[in-house]
Design a binder for these strands. Sequence first.
DNA 1: TTGACATGAAACCGAAAGGTTATATATAAT
DNA 2: ATTATATATAACCTTTCGGTTTCATGTCAA
Lengths: 106, 106
Amino acid sequence: MAAAEKHDVFQAIADPTRRQVLRLLSEKERPISEITSHFSVSRTAITKHLHILSEAKLVSGRKVGREKLYRLQPEPLEELHEWLSYYERFWSNKLSILKHIAEKEN
Amino acid sequence: MAAAEKHDVFQAIADPTRRQVLRLLSEKERPISEITSHFSVSRTAITKHLHILSEAKLVSGRKVGREKLYRLQPEPLEELHEWLSYYERFWSNKLSILKHIAEKEN
DNA sequence: TTGACATGAAACCGAAAGGTTATATATAAT
DNA sequence: ATTATATATAACCTTTCGGTTTCATGTCAA
């Protein structure tokens, strides 16, 4: 499952469990077992999700004593934001056109 | 493969081919074979991608003569945008805090 | 009406996704 | 030294993903 660069941010956020993990880590750094306690799947399954999130550089883990603490690494979400910004002009046209112009001026 | 609601917008955009299809359809309405001509996979494969995009309500198709024309349906991307907006405050803090405040005032 | 074109749909395939159980190892606490 | 805790890793399982080939059907053009 490990290897390198097999998962990107788009794949990483495709799974609802992984999105929930990101939410939890957005609040604070947490060890694996504490993350697991929020779900009904096994710790092993959560570990795999964390590996996928790691590959996508959305989280990073550091070992402290016998625990492994994971924290959010939000940078790759910028890529998603850029992708999405292309489409912003296609929805709710009236308001978003103004917003689009405004953002161009930054 | 069809059924109902099996794929959401997060899963739909996870695949690079599907993202490219969305780009093509953002320019204009196109028939399946014309879409297929932009890729190296079979028409059948593209049809399946279109089904998945349809389930996620990201595209819609209408039949005209012997062709089936697909067009972009951008609304579900708003859901993605909302999800993402939660995380905006976590990156490039300096600038985005101001932006965050500014957007609150709309 | 006879092809050619555009799509639909079924059957199949290998690989990956998402999960499990079981076993091993390192660290902390007693 | 012993035990409990936290994680790592391997093996395995079922379902889905992304793709193919094949065949059927509807529509347009000559």
